[in-house]
Design a protein around this nucleic acid. Sequence first.
DNA 1: CTGAAAGCGCTTACAG
DNA 2: CTGAAAGCGCTTACAG
Lengths: 339, 339
Amino acid sequence: MTRTGSRTTGRPTLAEVARLSGVSPITVSRALRGVATVAPELVAKVKAAAAELGYVANPAARALASAQSQSVVVLIPSLSNQLFVETLDAIHDVLRPRGLDVLIGNYRYDAAIEESLIRNYLACQPRGLLLTGLERSDAARQMLDASRVPRVHMMELDSHDDAVCVGFSQQDAGYAAARHLLQRGRRRIGFIAAQLDPRVLQRAEGFRRALGEAGLHDARLELMVPQPSSIALGGELFSQLLARHGDVDGIFFCNDDLAHGAIFQAQRQGVRVPEQVAMVGFNDLPASAHMVPRLTSIRTPLAAVGQQAAQALLDLLDGKGRQKATRDLGFELMMRESS
Amino acid sequence: MTRTGSRTTGRPTLAEVARLSGVSPITVSRALRGVATVAPELVAKVKAAAAELGYVANPAARALASAQSQSVVVLIPSLSNQLFVETLDAIHDVLRPRGLDVLIGNYRYDAAIEESLIRNYLACQPRGLLLTGLERSDAARQMLDASRVPRVHMMELDSHDDAVCVGFSQQDAGYAAARHLLQRGRRRIGFIAAQLDPRVLQRAEGFRRALGEAGLHDARLELMVPQPSSIALGGELFSQLLARHGDVDGIFFCNDDLAHGAIFQAQRQGVRVPEQVAMVGFNDLPASAHMVPRLTSIRTPLAAVGQQAAQALLDLLDGKGRQKATRDLGFELMMRESS
DNA sequence: CTGAAAGCGCTTACAG
DNA sequence: CTGAAAGCGCTTACAG
């Protein structure tokens, strides 16, 4: 069943390609890697020989000789969230064609798990890292700095230090959501949030800034719980908020799944949306455009973040420096029936 | 920025651990891998030295010397589908603690992409493969057989040959869904399906078998389109089916997202569910239990498939053979308001 | 522009 | 139970 014991893989090697094409192994290595210093006719001969033998370089040997692996590690806080799936897909699309393996670490919004993933993955000498956000444990930060592995931060923009970031301003997005409700004439605006990861808290800041400017901020209308975000939780929190504050006329949800749960719950309770309560969600998940009523939401550039972050990492690897260190990809308010 | 040029990684090596613990490198290697033939006191000494130096084996060197990588490749047809995300997560949970890297290939329901992923990933000499279903291109099949890399097939059960499979009977699940609608007294039962991958077609077979047995099969009530499954598509197909066949009183959807779209559309059109049309979905996506009305659905063991498939692969790698070659994990009908 | 030599950091295969 | 030697298949660093 499982071959064991043999030292070789049985696949053609560089040396065999060299023999067949009548050059030295190192020339084959250079020709195949596209190193400029090889004569065009030799390159052609080598490529023909490689094709004939079906040669593919052994990644382990390459990694060992060059002290560089071919893997990039992506650390995300959740996979169930659906959010990061689009991002991951885009990352794969950019990195795979460059021959890089993508290793995914899901730390489930747990800093200790993230730290342990960093520790373990760093042992594989990844070429680069794609991290979510800027906040992590001190130990994790130290390991990252010590490793000197190039990295790009996704989803947030950098405020103070010089990290390479690809994302958008979570705070501005929260601000935009609240401004929209204000412009719709809402005055008793609530905020329902779960998970409470750094990005959710940034959205909360933006929300407060907008309401504060309008002189309408009321902390009692904020319902923030640390549990994972879900449809069920959204329904529950909606009921709670309305039971406590019957005059609430608008709600910003930190994630669409909470808003979906609230829309279902509102229908069950006979609360009219948007007439009695207007709703704005976040992330514009696929279902949002189809809900009854259709959910107004902040569309976030999830795929673009993955694509650009991967590209930014490639730029770092290619030594193209970090001219445009931070890339703000923005967001878009999708106005629909719920507000 | 990016270190280039240095041959070494700068990390502690086996040789340094050997020096510190006063034994030979090979003994360190054996002690750390848990090979039985090392004296307990030496093992302790070696482990202490390794811990002191912060030694972690270089995976590339290990892979090169042993002609075996530490990676397992998982090929799935979709990432956006949310279905496979749970499965992937479970696979990670089983394989990572064993020191295996999980490489994900998303072939987007495209046999040509799958073939190319197989070609490329096989070059990395993965320890094992986790594949979705049993159907693929001839070229892909040949490469897989030639590679002799152990593999496990997920989501479907094997009918004829001797593949190791972990999943459930898609056909029986389709049969169960149709039987349920029949038992609810429905007589004009439609089938709405998209994507039309092999598993969807197996569900269709089960659906037809049930209706055929009841003498109620009417091919005109089957609406099957090759486009990707989505909420929007579900709404459209539902409208179409009802426009053509106003007497339809029950519908089985090959995937929950189609049913979600239909429920939203029914509400917009004023079609009452389940009074006028009963609905049954498939996969029991998170939203299904919360829709208005709550959607009856076939719950499939997505996480369990990942967990057990990964375990089955480990068994193959450990040479534990394939005693229980096929594992049927079953499914469950979640009865709710929509039927 | 091309190559001979050495080496990356492990494990295999063989002794003892 | 332990080890000296050789080798895995590449690339680096140095010549020419």
